[in-house]
Design a protein around this nucleic acid. Sequence first.
DNA 1: CATTTATGACGT
DNA 2: GACGTCATA
Length: 732
Amino acid sequence: MPVARPDSSGARIIAHVDLDCFYVQVEQRKQPKLRGLPTAVVQYNEWKGGGLIAVGYEARNYGVKRSMRGDEAKEVCPQIELVQVPVARGKADLSSYRNAGSEVVSILARKGRCERASIDEVYLDLTDAAEAMLAQTPPESLDEVDEEALKSHILGLESKDGNDSKATVKEWLCRCDADHRDKLLACGVLIVTELRMQVLKETEFTCSAGIAHNKMLAKLASGMNKPAQQTTVPFSSVKGLLDSLPIKKMKQLGGKLGTSLQNELGVTTVGDLLKFSEDKLQERYGFNTGTWLWNIARGISGEEVQARLLPKSHGSGKSFPGPRALKTVASVQHWLNQLCEELSERLCSDLEQNKRIAHTLTLHASAFKSSDSDSRKKFPSKSCPLRYGTAKIQEDTFNLFQAGLREFLGSFGVKTQGSHYSGWRITALSVSASKIVPVLSGTCSITKYFNGPDKFGSTSEQLPDNFIDAAPLSPSGSESYSTLNSTELQNELPGEQVWIEHSMADLGQLEMKANTWNRLDPSCSISKQTSGQWFHSGTESSSSLDQNKPQNRDDSRMRSVPIKSNQQEHKKSALKDKGASSILNFFKSGDLSCSSGNHDTEHAETLLPLGDCLSESNKKQVNIPKERLDNSTGDCLSESNQNQVNIPKERLAEAATTSTTTDRCGSDQIQQRSESWKLRIEEIDPSVIDELPKEIQDEIQAWLRPSKQPHRVKRGFTIADYFSPSKNRLEQ
DNA sequence: CATTTATGACGT
DNA sequence: GACGTCATA
């Protein structure tokens, strides 16, 4: 049935949910005494008190702002509680926030398609749930509406006392003469209220939300009333909202495009955009962007909520500002190794928990060339196929760095005259893993391929000689790595002896005992339980891969909830007893403070001796004299494993079933040694999939990411397009 | 060269 | 597929 009329039957109900000052909330849950106090989360406090990355609302009242230094915050708010971000391997460790975000996602995903937009934001498509509610128990049929729902803000709903009074809201929610869209929206409001209360009850986090007919408006709305409130945007108030909305407030227009709009076209508000024809906008900003601008000026956004609960990439990075910039290859290698350790650990968890494998490893760096005229220069990003195993990731990453460095310096190879100045300073490093695809649960055949008796442990022999080893040696830069061999590198650097000494001097803070080195196998394996699930679910589509379903992948917290302290259980039932618990009451009830007992252990930080950080291959590459190596070949656990609970072997079986995220890798590793049948992750090269038997490859095809949609934009939107996703998705 | 450290998306 | 750029919090 062709739809050319302004029809609301295609209306979607989209919510954007945003955790309030999330990192602060995570820290306050961990340390309940901080609740109610002006609090901020700060990372690294050495320099001017560290940088603020999250500021609680109490502190905002004193004028504390994100990205003040800790010291400045203390000036405006002397009583402020500054909590430090956990540190592991000498860098900020955001895993507790990531995990907390996962808790929330798994709750929010219960009522509809859920897209994890960032660590603390999700989009929900609640259309079906809203339609269902409207069909079964429409708001107008309710005698009573939840108190919390009555605190919602309805954009454009005039109110007597400036704020929407509850009576007015209730009337709006329950109007029986409302049009279909508004009724659906009312259902959305109730559903989101419910979800937010659920989040609060199960995680102790508050969030704010926007409910509208598309993502753009939902996102706008979620930020309008914070914290712990929600706002909905009825169709009828869209124009009023956008007309006076500063252009920079729109997602995507906060940067250069927004500035250009302002400067070149004199556009200050979204409403100003209406003056320009689609052609004009396309002419200036290109076809896709032009159409996109034309649409958003009218509140049109067809972007769909993607069913995705998991991140598409993992990265670990660190900056080295000012005088801390890295000047030697050894210090770079040290930090790369730290970053790779973290990355590897996270890849490991992702594989175990989500059955996904990353295929691409990328190195980013930023650098200054100090040799001549202190010019800043782009350090090229480099990527290569990703091989699992900490040591391999470290090795490949270092190779990528060297390739990048060579390109960065130009083929002249700025020789370090004297042995002091490298000619370059690295101010940031990051390593990331992308192209993450589900590993096929599909068949046992793939299991056998990896795990089969004849093939086990000899993956590389199945392949062309250089298949595995050569790939990482050919970063995608214009020059292949092979031309950058160790000899050549040496020529660009001080002699090896000197170089080593300088490296050590440069890493002065580190202890240079160098008695061990990290030649360890990757620090995780598939546990029996997990691999059982993984490899069993034959052709029935693997449940854990279905991102539409909530996943049980997390986590210490999730597991601890049911068995949590009595207090917490009492708290919950107390709340229930009170009937509809309002969010404010939740906190007023007062006994929150005794919750959350045992959260993450802090990560004891230990700097590894340099020797620990050089992988075998790396040492070869820099031609470290053999004698220096010999005494450094000890066995060692990666730092992350050292942080983990040491579990006696006898208790391994038990540990494996109760292990939390934090200790899983550690116990598994030990387990790996004691049980031989298990899969060695190290031996799984993602590239190997290409080498699989044809029938398996075919299965794999089904799981590969869908090919990119063409960036075509259909012209001539009708009003109907306002709500429904366009077939050809708008560019971003 | 002191907004860090993640993320995601698009263009070429 | 690789890489650069932009955007957001």
